[in-house]
Design a protein around this nucleic acid. Structure first.
Lengths: 231, 231, 231, 231
DNA sequence: TATGAATGAGGGTTCATTCAT
DNA sequence: TATGAATGAACCCTCATTCAT
């Protein structure tokens, strides 16, 4: 049940189920019915249960599968020339992946129960290696632990998911600044974008005419009411 | 249906339902059955429906209720003597509240549909006021918008929730560093804590004996296998 | 509970409930919630129950109320100059009323339980009187009983309800022909309307062009397939 | 979902559900709970939903099933030797079927939505064919349309249902008289049955003794009160 | 072994009826 | 007495899991 099935067709079924589940979870999360996953995989519901004891077990298997790929990437970056770029680039890369596939985010934040020790350790170890090299190169402040970095990484995924509007990756850039040594921030000149004076919604500058001060009539009205009455 | 009921018992029931729903959502999120909420509130399921047209409406009412309290706090801090402390203190306070009540986190990240404009704007406006004063005082970098701060705030809630172990608020402190002007970070001396050489789990120093290098026998074994074989 | 309440306001409430229930039943039948009836009547649900033991009892009271009015009409027609016109006119009148108020139909076809004997007898007696005079005048065949007429009457209501399209009352006219003495039918020249040759749907003649033979392309196609292939 | 299931047990279950639903609807109409249907069929509620997407869909399937059988009968009568007998016999036969199974009545009076065009047309077409032959043979008046016949047919079902007492089919006979050419009625000699002088309920003649004049003591009492008081 | 049909415990929601105010 | 809030059984429907084929 848990090991790798031997027969070729059984193996193929298992992979198709994993793939279908991954795609389904990526889009709809946990709430996609198992029958739907079976349908996408082109197998019967019973076959899913032959390969995975419960729906939850299937979910965990998907997640473990994804962690493997992420760990691979970390390991391949270990010997990069620039440790700072390797480290920050890796964080960005993982977050980008998670934007596409929500399951990745769950993979890194969910407990993996039985398998936890193994998978979890693998990822943490690989991330730690990148972190230490970056710290040794002075690119990351010394007082952060790998667990904190890992948590921040998941936080970035969640934040980017909350703000899908551009600029993409802004929250990750910000969060990375929290990790950088004090003198190497990504701080920019204040953007001189204009925002609604009432609700701070960014205003898209109109090509012509007088620049807008409010994002909507209702905010303009609100501002009007706030102005002191002339005596 | 939507206004405050007049009768004392009805009012009391409504409050009890809101409270029970709040607690239930805080722990289990959306998935707690409505019957369970009714049971906790000590009323019948029908009574819940008398007060809230659907489960979703109940959820939104809970969320709106919480936002109100959070907005109140922001407004009360607007005239604090120290804008920096007011701003960062507020972020910390909100995150702490959210640690106890997960619904707060949803409240700030969920769309509130019809009411969204109003509640959402109220919160954003209050947060923006705090932010601008802190920026004016040089305590927050100029290139962040209130929307970014808000997202970071929700991110902190989520991250703290992922790492309930001490030190509490560490992720928030880190995230705040991302907002601070470069020279005012909370960077500390590297903690000279020792961590497992394999999986980076922090090691609690034993009072006596030789300091441990690994967190567990399995990691020790793993380290052993990695050592180059003597020729 | 069952008798007439004495106090003026109580009496008024009872009447308003009856009226509201009548209107609600007329439109939606039995399935309108009792709360809705109470709301329409401008009273609380409890007040409805003070006046009528159950929803069913309320329904029966409505029905009895309507029968009263129908019986009144029958009695007022008893002394009309033309017994045939009185009889057939009465049937038509009742059916028309029922077209507007479905509750009337139920009133005449539903068992009235306890009250049945009284109300039911009243109506049957009144109808029988009209019938006998018409039979005596040779306007109605001798071999029908009042029970049959009554059933036919309800049948007309139901049929008209099934065919709300014009000509209104056609089914009633037809059914009345079943009652007439053989020589006094309402038979008309065959309407030379054209109907679809396939499904018999009446065809609205176009003002210009060749007259249509089929109601729709699909019927034309069907007709085509049915034609014998040329050898 | 919609087609015929392949497995023998599935097919059997589907048939049992249809049958159970048919019987349940026949007795209680739409309001029978779906769980009850499942129970009667000896399956779980889920199985019903596997075969029919909604309760409404199940109802429509039942109805469509019945129409099929009725249409079959009409088509088999098309080439009968006596068109009059075929036509009137068919009406009687359909009504008799509907007496046993109320769902048939609904089948012919309910809209069948998507399938309506097809099923509805099939039935109307078949009925129209019978009608035209009977009209050509002079057995049916020329001024009735197939739609009217159809409505009358449903009306007969409803009327017979309202009067389950003997003689069976009397209402249908009457209604058919409405369709007959004037000279071919089923008018009989007036039955010299005696009826209650008060409420017109037919009196079953007692084998011995003086013939009854009233159907019940209460009617006798009523008659007594109506008699003019002797001066 | 693979299929997909069957199960049945809930889930959200409605509404006739009761009862505290 | 009138109100309308509270009750809770019942309804339709879903879906994780089991099992006959």
């Amino acid at each position: 049940m848990s090991g790798q099935p031997q027969r070729a067709d059984a193996r193929r079924n298992r992979d198709r189920i994993l793939q279908a589940a991954f795609e389904a979870f990526a889009v709809d999360g946990h709430l996609v019915p198992l029958d739907e996953i079976a349908r996408r995989a082109g197998v019967g519901a019973g076959t899913v249960y032959r390969n995975f004891a419960t729906k939850e077990a299937l979910f965990k298997a998907v997640v473990a599968d994804r962690i493997d790929r992420i760990v691979d990437e970390a390991q391949s970056l270990l010997h990069a020339a620039d440790p700072a770029e390797a480290f920050y680039g890796y964080l960005t890369w993982v977050v980008e992946r998670a934007m596409i596939n929500h399951a990745i985010c769950d993979a890194l934040s969910t407990d993996l129960d039985d398998d936890k020790t193994r998978k979890d350790t693998e990822f943490t170890t690989a991330l730690d290696a990148l972190l230490r090299k970056a710290q040794a190169a002075g690119a990351v402040r010394q007082d952060v632990t790998v667990q904190e970095v890992r948590t921040l990484l998941v936080g970035c995924m969640l934040m980017e998911r909350l703000r899908p509007q551009p600029p993409r990756g802004r929250m990750t850039t910000l969060a990375c600044d929290a990790l950088r040594s004090a003198t190497k921030r990504n701080e920019t000149k204040p953007r001189n974008e204009t925002r609604c004076e009432i609700c701070a919604t960014p205003l898209t500058p109109a090509p012509t005419g007088r620049p807008a001060r409010y994002c909507s009539p209702s905010c303009r009205q609100k501002a009007h009411r706030r102005r002191p009455k002339p005596t």
